[in-house]
Write a protein that binds this DNA or RNA. Structure first.
Length: 476
RNA sequence: CGGGGCGUAGCGCAGUCCGGCUAGCGCGCCUGGUUCGGGACCAGGAGGUCGGUGGUUCAAAUCCACUCGCCCCGACCA
């Protein structure tokens, strides 16, 4: 029945691209590695933004905006940071028809420009904390790109906070990690594992990087959000000090954290099926589409009128659309809205009008549910919540079923290839061991759990004692 | 950067090996009509510097050289 969408089990990568095309979310642009986010895709981003923005503000953050351009010398002030980002920076050398005295980097992230600014804002402990977020675009010249998951330019939010104590900075880092986790689970309906990155995987310039990791339908892991405790690294690099209560000068403690348009890719790969996009209701820009059905002109008027009556008081309460376009037949419309991931479709034809009912169809299950027209909106609202929960549960079960414990390296190596998934392994903490199994399995340590159960065991590579298991998987 | 693929109508492609009429097909689009509870059908129509430059030739989408770009698979990364 489906045209134009490759089956998931035939070619997952192609399926992903096909779903994006079918749902009209984005397309490749004339510029390599860049994408045009089309209205359907951008609307999802706006839903993500709106909710996260509420959550950031509820936790005391405010928005600001820092420049796109960063003097090249700024980037070089933090050693690890420059090493990590320099290779993927786009640099502007000419402007206004002249060669610039100092080249400008197009921000790959804004720590450096922000800390050079915070320096002027902070003198006393009374100036702290600073809790700022910005919604922005950034550019990272990646070798290989994939729509939404990794593009040369992408949209994100980056929070940058400044604190008087190490403890406060750590609390902030964890607070945001919690926000991300809640957002992923409650809004994206994506269960996530939460933990710390290994030194090898952490952000360039951070003391510690925390993140949330979600499993996609191909059993690969996608990092969906990161929260960094930057310690005093950037304060030292930019000489940002404050006078504490006792009058002593101290370097400021910093955090930074972000999520990006990658989340749209995560949504696609978490829930969608061979018929196209499936969106969790809470992030669906359009939640309901009502399709009046008719044969003759008289019926057309009647059903259209009925549809208008039925939804007369919906406008402030739910995002919906009546698709009464006359140039398409119902089957075409069913398919079109399905591809686009609208959670609920309401069919209403002459038979329904006569029976004072409608047929409600769930996008996630395809289930058709006849419903009385009376009190339709609350029933729909309830169903949307049900769907939101069901999507989460389904994703959770899928992930749990594909998460294993492994103690034998050979077994792990074969299992990561087939069937694939997440593996809890004992790891001694030695980067050499990390590199070893990374090279041989192409899988990486996704997280070290923070509050996971302690369990003694031998490192799966070298056999030395390990205090707990770490999560390993192939990733995007 | 390595490997592979592709640039011909808005999209997907055929034609290229072996040069030759006015460059085709499907989808989509426009007009009219019949249709309408799971991707309708009929008729008519619009739409092309064949990625670019140079060369070979009476003649180039097709052969040669150079070049630009994009996509996919790997190494780097949110």
């Amino acid at each position: 029945m489906t045209k134009g969408i490759t089956k998931r089990n035939e070619d997952y990568a192609q399926w992903y691209l096909d779903v994006i095309a079918a749902a009209d979310l984005a397309e490749h642009s004339a510029v390599k590695g860049c994408m045009v986010i089309k209205p359907n895709g951008y609307a999802i981003w706006e839903m993500i933004q709106a909710q996260l923005d509420r959550m950031f503000k509820a936790t005391g953050h405010v928005n600001a905006y820092f420049p796109l351009f960063i003097p090249e010398s700024y980037l070089q002030k933090e050693a690890e940071h420059v090493e990590g980002f320099a290779p993927e920076c786009a640099v502007v050398t000419h402007a206004g028809g002249k060669r610039l005295e100092e080249p400008m980097v197009i921000r790959p992230t804004s720590e450096t420009i922000i800390w050079s600014t915070y320096k002027n804002w902070i003198q006393s402990y009374r100036d702290l904390p600073i809790l700022i977020n910005q919604w922005a675009n950034v550019v990272r010249w990646e070798m290989r790109t994939r729509l939404f998951l990794r593009t040369t330019e992408f949209l994100w939010q980056e929070g940058h906070t400044a604190h008087a104590t190490a403890q406060e900075a750590e609390e902030e880092t964890l607070k945001i990690l919690g926000v991300y986790r809640d957002f992923a689970e409650q809004y994206m309906a994506a269960p996530v594992y939460v933990g710390i990155k290994t030194d090898k995987e952490k952000f360039a310039g951070a003391v510690r990087t925390y993140c949330i990791e979600a499993m996609m339908q191909d059993r690969k892991s996608l990092q969906c959000g990161t929260s960094h405790n930057l310690g005093q690294n950037f304060a030292r690099a930019f000489d940002v000090t404050f006078q504490d209560e006792s009058g002593k000068l101290q370097h400021v403690y910093a955090t930074s954290w972000g999520v990006s348009t990658r989340l749209i890719g995560a949504l696609v790969m978490s829930h969608s099926d061979d018929n196209g996009l499936v969106l969790p209701p809470r992030l669906a820009p359009l939640k309901v589409v009502l399709i009046p059905i008719w044969k003759e002109e008289s019926e057309m008027e009647k059903t259209k009128q009925k549809a208008a009556e039925l939804t007369a008081n919906w406008h402030d309460q739910i995002s919906f659309r009546i698709d009464d376009r006359d140039q398409y037949r119902p089957g075409y419309k069913f398919n079109e809205w399905e591809k686009r991931g609208v959670p609920i479709r309401i069919e209403m034809g002459p038979r329904d009008v006569a029976a004072d009912q409608v047929v409600v169809v769930r996008r996630d299950t395809g289930e058709k549910i006849p419903m009385p027209q009376q009190d339709l909106l609350p029933r729909i609202q309830k169903l949307l919540e049900q769907m939101q929960n069901d999507l989460y549960q389904r994703a959770l079960e899928y992930r749990n079923a594909a998460t294993y414990r492994a103690d034998d390296y050979k077994e792990f190596q074969s299992a990561i290839e087939n069937p694939g998934g997440f593996f809890w392994l004992h790891w001694c903490g030695n980067p050499d061991c990390e590199n070893r199994f990374q090279e041989t399995s192409k899988a990486t340590i996704r997280i070290i759990p923070m509050d996971g159960e302690k369990e003694q065991g031998p490192c799966i590579v070298c056999g030395k004692p390990s205090q707990q298991r770490v999560l390993v998987g192939k990733s995007y």
